[in-house]
Amino acid sequence: MQPVLVLYYSRNGSTKRLADAIAQGVSSLDVPVIVRTVKSISDAANDAASSAVPEVSLQELEQCSALALGSPTRFGNMAAPVKHFLDSTSSQWLKGALIDKPACVFTSSSSMHGGQESTLLSMMVPLIHHGMVICGLPYSEPALHNTTMGGSPYGVTHVAHHSLSAPEQLSEDEKALCIAQGKRLAMFAKKLADNA
């Protein structure tokens, strides 16, 4: 089975923490997983959180069995490096390389109402154009009812500067939702691989 690709961009580490927890959920089902980042588009940017992992290749995107795509929220939209990467995937679209593969999206913002859900929706649109099958989080996940911080049926989220949480950590509910999202994505990837 090809690995699940957890792909993200992170400036200060919040989105990376989500990516790592989603990857933990994927690997808990004995599904192979790789964690990658997209290239920064600004030489001046301080992207220490993204520079800690390898940059994704288009071949890794093509070969993945499923995709978890993450970005910090920028004015209710995905960050420019994520959009720049997606804009470079025309050849994968022409080949239909991602058709019928499961995908999920995740984001972090610095405030409770910082545009998280619109960011998740903005990331879904190109994936739908690629023919991917979007995998959200059902309300059967208890943490989705309990969270007072990040969390959404559209995908997992993190509130980085909430008064109840240090910015350097996920809340227990946020982490539980990430692991559940990773497990759900891995489950769909595994079922599709078994039926191929």
Rank of each mutant, 00 (worst) to 15 (best):
L120H: 03
G70T: 02
S91I: 12
P81G: 07
V26C: 05
P54E: 13
L120F: 09
H161P: 00
V82H: 06
Q116N: 02
A166L: 14
Q181V: 07
D100S: 14
I41Y: 02
P81K: 06
V105N: 06
S165K: 12
N46S: 08
Q116I: 01
L86S: 00
M123Y: 02
A23P: 08
D43R: 11
V53M: 11
S71K: 05
L137R: 00
C178W: 04
K183G: 09
Y8K: 04
L177A: 06
E62C: 05
A68M: 08
D194Q: 14
G76I: 08
A186F: 10
Y8H: 12
H84W: 08
R11L: 14
V35I: 15
V56Y: 05
N195D: 14
A44F: 01
P126L: 08
R17K: 13
Q63C: 07
D194R: 13
S109R: 00
A180T: 13
Q59H: 10
G13W: 03
A189D: 03
K16T: 09
P126C: 08
V38D: 02
V53F: 15
S14W: 01
N77A: 10
V33S: 04
K175P: 00
E55S: 10
P32Q: 14
V105E: 04
A196G: 15
A103T: 03
S42E: 02
Q181N: 08
M132L: 11
N12Y: 00
A48H: 04
V35H: 10
H84D: 15
L67Q: 01
S91Y: 12
N195I: 15
S108D: 08
V26E: 02
Q116P: 00
F85S: 06
T89C: 13
K83V: 09
P102D: 06
S111N: 06
K39C: 03
L29V: 11
L29F: 11
V38T: 12
K101A: 01
P126Y: 11
A193L: 09
R11C: 09
A189E: 03
R17Q: 13
N77S: 12
S152Q: 00
A23D: 05
S27H: 13
K191T: 13
E55A: 10
A176I: 08
C64Q: 03
F106I: 07
W93C: 00
Q116T: 02
T107N: 10
S88D: 01
S40M: 05
S108V: 12
K83W: 06
L127G: 02
L29A: 11
T119N: 05
P81Y: 03
V159D: 00
L86R: 00
S109Q: 00
S91H: 14
A21P: 05
S28H: 09
E62S: 13
P102C: 09
F75T: 08
G182E: 01
L5G: 05
Q169A: 11
N12A: 10
M124E: 10
